[in-house]
Amino acid sequence: MILEAKDLNYYYQDGESRRFVLKNTNVSFDKGKFYTILGQSGSGKTTLLSLLSAMDTPHNGEVVFDGKNILEIGHDNYRRNKVGIIFQSYNLIPTFTAVENVLISMSITENELPDNHKTVAYNLLDYIGISQDKANRTVNKLSGGEQQRVAIARALSTNVELILADEPTGNLDEEMEQEIIDIFKKLAHEHEKCVIMVTHSNDIAEQSDQTFYLKKGVLNTNE
């Protein structure tokens, strides 16, 4: 078990009353597996992922990484060294090239990395399907699918074991979508990563090792 959520509660204050987005959510994840969290739009998927990635803090409950509360690890520290996050809207820095975007996260992490960052970054991009020529372009000159690959390379570049992805294929066509899913499967099965992906697509969910269903803030292991 690498990641565990214990009794997570998250709500928005609506005047006097609280509107719960997540209610007593308990879930745990292992390394080497590709997980999907399936839910309709507005069901709280992004909220759950923001808590698991320490982009936000739950009102109750805790997120535990490797047996330690992530508050104890420190949210910045956790994001810097323990988790790679992939967003629906890529979130790359447009003035920098693809390889520079990868290099930035490599310079921020404190994890042990091979000495020659540049070579590592090019190799990683190549592995994900970005040629050196494309790696040297500023990212706004890449297609959506290519940009998301750069984002995946960035998430992997810090040598983390946990990858969290929030509807990463939401803006891509089906072919591109399948290629990204294949990468995730490979990362889980060949590289022992724990990949957790949020989606509203049943087709994708079916390809994962385990699916959790999120409905009105309640997480279940079956429909």
């Binding site: 910045d76 996050i85 820095i93």
Partner: peptide
């Protein structure tokens, strides 16, 4: 704004 948010999401202090 987005660039700054990216640095923070990557765990930069």
């Amino acid at each position: 704004k987005r660039e700054l948010g990216i640095y923070l999401s990557l765990g930069e202090s």
